[in-house]
Computed example of a mutant assay.
Amino acid sequence: MPTGSCKLCCVEGELQLSHFIPKFVGKWIKDTSATGFIRLNQSVNKRAQDTAKDYWLCRGCEQLFSGWEREFAKKIFYPVVNEGKSEAIYGDWLAKFCASLSWRTLTYIRNVSPDGHKGCEGVDEALDQAESALADYLLGRSNNLGKYEQHFYPLEAFSKTNVRNLPANINRYILRNMHMDILYGEKGVMVYTKLPYFIVLGLTGHSESTRMRSSRVALGGGKVSPREYWWPTGFAEYMFRKAREISGSYKSINPKQRKVIDSALKTNPERAANSKTIEAFNHDHKIFGDRAFFE
C-alpha cells in the first residue's frame, strides 16, 4: 500500500484504494448487464471490471464511508433496483452517505479536471469552502451542513413522451448510468453524482434551495417516498444533454469492440434477455419505437 496524506482527514499514513462511485454500485451494474462487463463513459472502447478508484483515503476514513454505504445499499439501493420498492425509512446515515458522495465527486473532478471551471469567477473559492465544510461534517467536527445541504432524487423509468426534447435513451441513462460532475451557473454551484435509479445533488448555497425542500435529506432521518420534486432551473436539460452525449459515444464504438459485444450476447442469450440492460432498453423502445435502437 502506498503512503501519503489522506484526502479527507489529512493524516499521513497508508492509503486505501478507494472507489469514487461505491464499489457495490459498479458490481450491480456489471452483474445485471447483458454481457457481464461495464463500459465507462469516457472509454467505451474498453471493457471494464470496475469503476474509477485511487489511493485517496486512510483506513479509518475508508471504513467510515463503508459503513454509510452498507446502510444505503441494504435499506435503499437493493430494495429499489432489485425489488421495485419505492419507500424507505432512513436514519442519519443517509445525509452522511450523500455528503460522502458529494465530497468524493468534488475532489475527484477537481483532481482530474483542475482547469475545468477556469474563467468562472468565484467558483474555486466556493468549491474550496464546500470541500472543507463537507469534510468537517463527515469527520464529525460539525453536526450540520449549513448551506451545503444534500438533495436526494429517486428516479423511475419514463413511461410517456410528454416531456419536450426527451432523448430516446433516457431510461438507459436513468436506470443504468453512473456520472460525476460539478455544475456551475448564475444560481450557484452544484455537485452532481448520478447512480442507477438515484441522483445526489450537493449544493453550495444555490439560490433555488428553498424550492427544493422535497428532495433535501434530513440530517436526523426521514422517509424516501414518491413525491413531487423540484429540479433546479436548467437541470433537466443538462441530464438530457448528457444522455445524448453518452448515446453519441456508444455510436463511436469501434468494429472490433462491436464484435466483442455481439459475441458475448450470442454466448449467453438467456443472460442478455433477462438483464437489466435489456429491461432499460425495453422501456425506451416502448416509448420511442425503433428510434431507441439508434440513440
Rank of each mutant, 00 (worst) to 15 (best):
21 I>A: 08
238 Y>Q: 07
153 Y>W: 12
193 T>Q: 07
11 V>E: 12
181 D>M: 09
211 R>Y: 15
144 N>T: 15
171 N>D: 06
226 P>T: 06
52 A>D: 15
22 P>I: 01
7 K>H: 14
274 N>W: 10
146 G>E: 05
81 V>D: 00
58 C>D: 00
198 F>H: 04
20 F>Q: 11
284 D>Y: 02
170 I>L: 11
8 L>K: 03
223 K>L: 14
166 L>N: 00
220 G>M: 14
100 S>P: 07
184 Y>L: 12
283 H>Q: 15
147 K>W: 07
14 E>I: 14
256 K>V: 13
75 K>W: 14
214 S>Y: 12
295 E>L: 06
173 Y>A: 02
185 G>N: 08
224 V>D: 00
280 A>I: 02
49 Q>E: 15
97 F>G: 03
276 K>W: 11
290 D>E: 14
163 V>I: 15
160 K>W: 10
118 K>M: 13
164 R>N: 14
151 H>A: 06
276 K>R: 12
238 Y>T: 05
233 T>P: 05
253 I>G: 11
130 A>Y: 01
203 L>G: 06
295 E>T: 11
197 Y>P: 03
62 E>G: 09
132 S>L: 08
135 A>M: 00
160 K>Y: 10
268 N>I: 05
245 E>A: 09
41 N>G: 15
28 W>R: 05
10 C>F: 02
61 C>L: 02
14 E>K: 13
221 G>A: 13
285 H>L: 10
126 A>M: 10
290 D>M: 08
219 L>S: 08
71 E>N: 12
194 K>S: 05
213 R>S: 13
264 A>V: 13
27 K>D: 14
204 T>H: 05
109 I>L: 10
104 R>D: 02
247 S>L: 01
82 N>K: 10
278 I>P: 01
291 R>E: 10
109 I>F: 10
